[in-house]
Amino acid sequence: MTITAHPPVRVAVAARAVDVWKVYGSGEAQVVALRGVSMEVAAGRFTAIMGPSGSGKSTLMHCLAGLDAVTRGEVHIGDTKLTGLGDAGLTKLRREQVGFIFQQFNLLPTLTAEENILLPLAIAGRKPDREWFRTVIDTVGLGDRLGHRPSQLSGGQQQRVACARALVSRPEVVFADEPTGNLDSRSGAEVLSFLRSSVREHGQTIVMVTHDPTAASYADRVVFLADGRIVNELTEPTPQKVLDAMQSLDRVAADTAGAES
């Protein structure tokens, strides 16, 4: 009997960093935020990035998203190489291929929820796909709040508006920087459930920076940074597994500091 060997299935990659270094300042004031980081973000998956304060997690996300230029190395979004793109190219990429969700909701107070959601498309001169818009609104659960302005919405509702705004243009990848940092636990759980359902039901790719083990447990994969390097990762995370991993990093950092003193 002949056995045919099949090649491994190649998972599509939405974003990747290749030997990325990020250095701020020079001389005695120099700070090395990232030290040769290489990672791939699988398409259609929810990836969380964690690490102690100063580990480089937000810097990594900003470099992956094209918000900050790398000192050395390469960054790709889909088939587009960000490294070397000019301002016009980066602006076009961020507008068409990337979505952003920040801790601060960044909603315009004079616009309604619907107008805030559709604003990036309006700026780009693109008409919304009404069927997809309705799908996003149904997923985020804001159908009865579209005519409300931000001041008429709770914090959780405002963040869900920001999430819908990030998704409505169908970006290649959505980057979320501490998206539940300003929310109470219930509102935070609502936002995280929405992000997870956007991945599982609609194939969205999400990269989230967080310090919260519970928030990280909503992800498919958690990548841990320390001192600008990737030092660990978890798949199928639970809050306890994430907490244990973070405590392990803290112990290593404390031991290192003690050895150097």
Rank of each mutant, 00 (worst) to 15 (best):
V20Y: 00
G155I: 09
R221Y: 04
F100N: 01
M246A: 08
V23G: 04
S187C: 15
G44A: 03
D212A: 06
K241V: 11
K57V: 01
V9I: 11
S185N: 12
Q97N: 14
A189F: 13
E201R: 12
V32E: 13
R196V: 10
A245M: 03
Q104H: 11
E131A: 15
V18G: 05
V11M: 12
A12R: 15
S261Q: 13
R16P: 06
T139A: 11
E28A: 15
G188R: 06
P239Q: 15
R160Y: 08
L85R: 01
L142C: 09
K81D: 02
S248K: 12
P171C: 05
P213W: 05
N232Y: 08
T238M: 09
V168K: 05
D87L: 07
A69G: 04
G56S: 09
I77M: 00
R160L: 05
R229C: 13
P52R: 13
I3E: 15
E114R: 14
R200L: 11
T47E: 02
R134D: 15
G258L: 09
G143T: 09
M50Y: 07
S217C: 06
M1E: 06
V98Y: 03
G141H: 10
V23S: 07
Q240F: 07
M50Q: 03
D212M: 02
P109V: 12
A215Q: 13
D144Q: 14
R95L: 07
P171F: 09
T214A: 12
E172A: 14
L225Q: 03
F102I: 02
L67A: 02
I137F: 08
G143W: 05
D87T: 09
V199W: 05
T210Q: 08
P237Q: 02
H62V: 00
V252H: 07
A14K: 04
A65G: 11
R251Y: 08
M246L: 15
A164P: 02
C63I: 04
I49M: 10
I101F: 02
A113M: 04
